[in-house]
Nucleic acid binder design. Structure first.
Lengths: 242, 242
DNA sequence: CATCAAGATATGTCTAGTTGTATAATATAG
DNA sequence: CTATATTATACAACTAGACATATCTTGATG
């Protein structure tokens, strides 16, 4: 009579407000350092109580997007992390240069046979053993990407051990005789987050991700790493160098 | 317990309560916009459980007679606003003629490239710069619609500034040399409200909206505005002139 | 010009009240 | 006995208002 089984599990009001403000910020309507409208004004705009706006703002503060000062207002803390993609792609260096505090958590390192795509990208025979590792990247303590990258073991013997000991791609490659490497190719596309990715990135299943696929080569143009990275779309802006 | 338990009840308690409240409303005891007593008070007054009162209120909400807002209360719903759609569509004029108090709140004005659909509707090259603005429409202080409309900047230089200064489409167009305009086409369809729309219109996510897509042209039949409006389905009745 | 005081604003915190939702128990009709 | 209507209880989410406290603005004062 009154209700049908098709009940609407609506998103919380404060959550919708947070999303709206997050969108305004990421679209540049409020630039970094800008003062957001006062809580009272926002409450009026959205037609809700001030406490509901405060809940939304608290969420944005928790995410690091907004910083509040009592008596002064709420200010946009920073734009999404700029992540330059060019000939030299170094996670730690890039974020340090942007004034961020980078962090990396390796979830797994394993040896396994190469898939067809991996073998092709690394220019090795299909089914050859390689070293794969995947994990999470953080900026200022907030997860911004999940990655999976593989190395040809035949070309880089001991890379798996070096990776485990150093926890750094750059250092591990240096350990096995690759002092420098450059990005040979990068492909970008947008996909939806699956459950696992959403969990790691603290977002919702289906939220947009920016997927980057790239191959790094050594000084003699031999592929040394084939990596895929899924960036949280609302936290990262990739910038392309000429 | 207080009511005769041995007798067979022809009508359910909640139904009787709904009828009583419906009568109070139709007799003017509660005028449109008035706040009904709280569920606790009504439960006390009718000598029943709060849930039984809620069942009655749910029925009235379903009928469209009552609107509830969590934390605020239950209110007698205002009558739907008649909104004529014809050759001349003027938000303010239409509502003033209907004896309402119109209001408009522009949320954003920006310049950006035209999408394919917008370029087609305005008969301009794809990607050309246009002026877009979106916001909210009110009738007697209640939000009844969200809108987004775009203008071709090449054909109407300065329209964005005029819009910002006047806050009125009709006046802004007059400022840039379009003294009069008429509706060339209108398309209507029903859609579900997303979280943002629901928030602005103070309704629930998934509630039905009436979407109107229209193109306005100047005296020489050149498109000057391409607008989309989402009306709250329970607050507006569109009326078509012959 | 520099400084201080007072007022206006804005966020932080607290208390209370109201609707929304979930779960379980009880009564009544069929 | 079974299904439905009603009661009972608890908690979550949102509103409403008041007050404290930090910050900014303004104007008077020397």
């Amino acid at each position: 009579m009154s209700n049908s089984p098709a009940k609407t599990r609506r998103t919380a009001i404060w959550s919708a407000i947070a999303t709206a403000l997050r969108g305004d910020i990421s679209e540049g309507r409020y630039a970094p350092g800008d003062k957001l409208p006062t809580e009272a004004v926002l409450a009026e705009r959205f037609g809700v109580n001030r406490h509901t706006v405060r809940h939304a703002l608290a969420k944005l503060v928790e995410e690091g997007l907004v910083r509040t000062r009592r008596g002064a207002g709420a200010f946009v803390a920073a734009l999404p992390t700029d992540y330059p993609i060019g000939r030299r792609v170094r996670f730690h260096e890039n974020l340090l240069a942007a004034g961020r505090r980078p962090e990396k958590r390796i979830l797994q390192i394993e040896r396994r046979a190469a898939t067809i795509g991996e073998a092709e990208a690394l220019a090795i025979p299909k089914g050859e053993t390689l070293c794969a590792h995947h994990g999470l990247s953080f900026s200022d303590g907030r997860p911004i990407a999940v990655f999976e990258s593989v190395f040809p073991l035949s070309r880089l013997p001991g890379i798996d051990i070096a990776l485990e000991e150093t926890g750094s791609v750059t250092e591990a490659l240096a350990c096995v005789g690759v002092p420098d490497y450059t990005r040979a190719s990068t492909r970008l596309t947008a996909v939806r987050a699956n459950a696992t990715q959403a969990l790691h990135l603290q977002m919702r299943e289906g939220d947009p991700l920016l997927r980057s696929t790239g191959v790094n080569v050594d000084g003699e143009m031999r592929p040394v790493e084939y990596g895929r990275t899924w960036f949280a779309g609302d936290r990262v802006t990739l910038t392309l160098e000429s």
